[in-house]
Structures are given as C-alpha cells and as structure tokens.
Design a binder for these strands. Structure first.
Lengths: 228, 228
DNA sequence: GCAAAAGTGTTATATGTACACCCATGT
DNA sequence: ACATGGGTGTACATATAACACTTTTGC
C-alpha cells in the first residue's frame, strides 16, 4: 500500500481523541481526576478527562484545551504517554486515543468547576470501575510517572515553592507508594544542586521546625542533574 | 467539552496513519529503511514506511500490515514510539501518525520486493533528506532503540542464532555508535544467564576461532535479566 | 522530663570504567 | 616467527541499601 492510497478515498472513519490522566496529591496519596459518566454506554462508571481533537489543533494543544475546559488549569506540564488503538476499545465507534498525563497541585484547582463537570478525585490505589480501557491508560501513566518522578523535577509542582525535606519525602513516598529511608533520601537531595536550602524554617509541623528548601529552575537547567 | 460531543457531528476530518521506523544492521552500522517519494509533495525526498489505519484494524495490526506490505516480513517485534500530531505536519491534509519501530535482520528481507516499492536502506548517520517530520520520528526511534537495546534482548534479532562475542560487540557498537571496552562487555555478557556458551567455535573470522553463544528464550523469560 | 518530629554517618554491596598483556592459530 | 583476532583481571570511583541514635522544642 502506498502512502497516498487513502487520501483520495473517503474510506477512513476513525475518530481521534485525547485522554488526560491528571494526577494530584492529597492526604499523602496520589490521586487521579475522573469524570462520572451520566450517559450510556457505561453509564455510572467513571472515565478520564477526554475529548476529540480539533481539525486544526496540535495534539498537545488538544490535550491542554480539554484539560482547561474541564479544570480551568492552564500551562500545565503534560507529557504524551502513548496511543491506544484497539479496534474495539470504544463501543460508540472506532476511536483512537492518545493519552497525556500531568501532575498538578490540587489546591490550585477550582473545586466548583470540577464538580460542575461531575469530576472527582480518587486515590489511585482505590479507583472505581473505569469505562472502556481507561484503567489501562491509568496504569501506563502511573508506570511512566514513577519513572519520570525519579529522573526529573516534575513532582516539585505538587508542593509549595518553599518546602521541607520531610514534606518532599512524604510526597515521594505517596507517589511511589513505598517507604523511603530518610537518610538516603537526604543524601540524594544534597546532591541535587537545584534544590537549595533557605535560611528559614517551617515551624508548623514540629516543635523543632524544619529547614525550608526551594527548587531553582535556572540551576536545574544548567546542571540537569536530578536523581531521587 | 463533554466526551461525547463530537460523536453526533461529522466535524472531525483527521486522517490517522502509522509510520514504521525499520532498523537493520549492515556493515557494522545501523541502517534505516526508507521509501523514495515519486509524487508531490516532497517528490524526490525519502520517507518512512507508512500507511493509513484500517477502520477495523488494531494499531499494531496496522503497523504490521504496512510493514508486511512493504517488506514481506511477518511476526516482527514492533513497539510503539509515540504519536506525532502537529496540525501542519503534513501538507496533504491533517494527519496524525503513530510511529512504530522494529529491528530486523536484513538478510531475511526480500531485496526485490524492497526495490519494487522504491525502498532502500540508509545508514542512520547518513540519511538523505526526509519528507515531512520523518526525521523527528527517526530520531525519537533511535533514542528509544538505544535505551531498549541495553535493557532487552531485542538486538539479538539482528544476528544469527549462533554468534560470537566479538560479533555481538560489533553489533552493539554499531547500534550505539560508540566503542565499547571488550573486557567490560564480556563481563556483562557473563552475567546474563540467557546468553549461553556453546561448545563450538566459529573459525571463519580468525585463525584462533571464537566460541559461539546462543540466546535462550526460556532462560530469559525466567530471569528477565539483561543489561549491557 | 517527655513526646514528637528533625537531623545526622558508616558499612557492605553492586555497578561502571579505565586500562595492557598473553593466547591460539595459519601462514 | 609473526600477524591476526580472541581472550583474560585488577583497581578505582560511584551508586545503592541497610541500619540507630541525638537534637530541639513546646508542653
């Protein structure tokens, strides 16, 4: 088959969508934003934030628009996970979906807007039944997330600009869903030049207080070193 | 925008294709299979093996069919790389392309069939000018390949069932495009249980002869260890 | 003075990297 | 005997994993 062969014909009838796997962090757990399906098929199940791609829209633009429409969030760092394209994956009609994933700060969300769309946060360890193949999408995104979170500073979007090391460790333990040794964790932090110690302490979580740190974007761009 | 919003309308006019980045190994170099474009646009440039997805075809099926049509190869181990979807990436019309990549043994190819399609092997370090955004696709696939080749036995598809260590090292040096230390390379091979030493020697490449090895699929499935 | 969280060092193990000489054989 | 490619071991640096006690402070 030549590359042009389908351009003349109008035979291809495939819709193409994006689905967003939005992770947030709450109660020391990783959560995922889902929408309640009010219509058949799979009415009552939950599904990812998704929508069809516009004719003149880049893929990432589509992902960002869909995310914006459903959450009000802009300029979110999203990465493509992969395309899902089994012929029968969506009973409504042939659809190929390209998944994007993001990590966001739940506190920056407009909760009312979320509720208007019938959306809700669920802990990733306790998801409801998902529509279509969305559970596969979430699993693929989690695997990717857990890898990326150790090599890139994406997780730092989930905590305030100034943070303590115990806070950051709790974040990582929540995302990775495993306990980390605090001495080893601190040693690794110390090796990351882009995480700089501030003079101040946070006194809210303990009597002694914990030193605050901040992530320096410029330093990170220079060193590119990040390993946790 | 609700997830259903485009299903009723017939507004979406996007074609969806697969493009295959097929790597082979020849003259101790990594090569990539390309097709010569005989038609406008970009007539005279070279492009990847690609085609549109059938309405009832899984994504991987489409990739395999396209590959089969252009090369006669079946049961090739292909992996999805990513989707390319810039709105203006193809001047012929809006097209989203999902890339798949494979490593194959050039000697198993039917060279006549390749020529019939105007296809040709090019060293990846010396590619001709490629159509559209295909150069980005090749680069993404090479990055992925170089990572995968160190963690999985996919490169073993490129050499005969029985092979010598110097052969395997040359293969890796060709794929990675960097010299490897032969003592370190041998030590790593020794740690991979799935690569088993045979009694025989290959006498064709040297006077002394070199021991032959083979990859044991079953052992690999048990141990899952592969690190080069 | 005690409860609660923050902070600190050492050792063992594994992995990566650099590096130079001897071995076996056909001619 | 020599040219050719095959084969071998050691030392150093780095990364990872396991593990227990002291410090600070508000009550």
């Amino acid at each position: 088959m030549r590359i042009e062969s389908l351009f003349d014909q109008q035979t291809q009838q495939i819709k193409i969508a994006v689905d967003c796997i939005i992770f947030g962090f709450n109660n020391n757990r990783l959560e995922c934003l889902l929408i309640h399906r009010e219509a058949e098929p799979q009415k009552g199940k939950w599904s990812l934030i998704g929508g069809f791609i516009g004719n003149d829209e880049d893929l990432d633009e589509a992902a960002n628009r869909v995310l914006y429409n459903l959450s009000g969030l802009e300029n979110v760092y999203m990465e493509q996970v992969k395309a899902f394209g089994k012929a029968n994956r969506d009973p409504r009609g042939r659809t190929i979906s390209i998944t994007y994933t993001a990590l966001i700060l739940r506190s920056e969300y407009d909760d009312d807007k979320i509720k208007d769309h019938g959306a809700k946060w669920f802990p990733v360890n306790d998801l409801p039944e998902l529509a279509f193949d969305h559970i596969d999408m979430v699993e693929a995104a989690i695997i990717r997330l857990r890898r990326r979170v150790r090599n890139t500073p994406i997780a730092l979007n989930l905590i305030p600009e100034k943070f303590t090391i115990p806070q950051l460790q709790a974040l990582y333990e929540g995302i990775l869903d495993e306990p980390l040794d605090k001495r080893n964790f601190r040693r690794k932090i110390a090796q990351i030049e882009a995480i700089v110690k501030l003079g101040e302490k946070d006194m809210t979580a303990s009597r002694r207080g914990a030193f605050l740190y901040a992530f320096d974007e410029n330093l990170y761009n220079n060193t590119q070193y990040f390993n946790l």
